[in-house]
């Protein structure tokens, strides 16, 4: 279980995260949702360990890891731009971590991941030859080889279009349940957040606006921000799609 206790982060007088407290249960998928500048990327960096916190505690499975350096926390991330190494082909990217830690995943486990992510025919390709969706899957595989205790995904779908978006979404869900992974996803898209996760954390101006299941957010929005910025968008989308299919939107 990951517990955040009264987390604060400020740069000078600029308060980026203010009094964030919440629990994330094992094997849960949690989306962090909010407009740009709300602090969601900072929260991600703080949990990962790139950024130090100003105040508060991060507790993972009962241990206070607030001061622990990033590489000792055992968490891992897939960045928005994937950060694949262009000097290595897809397979070498996937197995990058094995050079440092040969026993972290067995050959069978690596092959299992490659199969699950449907990457078999792309292993010899250089990074520049891969499509956006393929890059995303390679980056996911590379991270999963490291068997992270917590998986962080930064805007994993924003660079992908239509159909691929939906298929990657499904894959993320499959991986989370298959590997029993606690997953935190940062996104600015309400539809994405509410359809992929067990719980959604809505941030506004560095504070928690609402933290709950998708149903709770739809049926019991806690404040005007959630209503105005999250629900309104979804309603417009819903109406558009209904009118497109000529159906009744009630």
């Amino acid at each position: 279980m990951l517990e955040l206790r009264n987390l604060r982060k400020s740069y000078g007088s600029n308060q980026v995260l203010n009094d964030i407290s919440l629990d994330i249960q094992d094997c849960e998928i949690v989306s962090v949702l909010g407009p740009s500048g709300c602090g969601k990327t900072t929260l991600l960096n703080v949990i990962l360990g790139i950024t130090d916190i100003t105040d508060g505690q991060i507790i993972f499975n009962g241990e206070d890891i607030s001061e622990k350096p990033m590489e000792q926390r055992g968490f891992n991330i897939v960045f928005q731009d994937y950060a694949l190494f262009p000097n290595l082909n897809a397979y070498k990217n996937i197995t990058y971590g094995l050079k440092n830690n040969p026993n972290i995943s067995t050959q069978e486990e690596v092959e299992g991941l490659i199969n699950l992510l449907n990457l078999n025919e792309h292993l010899d390709k250089s990074i520049n030859q891969l499509s956006g969706g393929q890059k995303q899957r390679v980056a996911l595989a590379r991270t999963l080889v490291m068997k992270p205790k917590l998986l962080l995904l930064d805007e994993p779908l924003s660079a992908l279009d239509g159909v691929i978006k939906e298929s990657i979404k499904e894959r993320i869900k499959t991986i989370a349940s298959e590997y029993k992974l606690t997953t935190i996803i940062v996104t600015h898209d309400p539809e994405e957040a509410l359809t992929i996760s067990d719980k959604v954390l809505i941030l506004n101006k560095g504070e928690i606006s609402q933290y709950g299941t998708p149903e709770e957010i739809i049926n019991a929005p806690k404040n005007d921000f959630v209503k105005e910025f999250i629900l309104k968008q979804l309603t417009i989308k819903k109406n558009n799609i209904f009118s497109l299919f000529g159906g009744n939107n009630e």
């Binding site: 990962l48 790139i50 990033m70 590489e71 968490f75 891992n76 991330i77 960045f79 731009d81 950060a83 190494f85 000097n87 990058y96 971590g97 050079k99 440092n100 830690n101 590379r142 991270t143 490291m146």
Partner: peptide, 22 residues
């Protein structure tokens, strides 16, 4: 890409290894 060092470090590289390998 700005995230290479972080990514490589999460894969177990130290600074020097990241410079050499990536």
């Amino acid at each position: 890409c700005a995230s290479w060092e972080t990514t490589a470090m999460l894969m177990g590289d130290n600074w020097f290894k990241t410079i050499v390998r990536v």
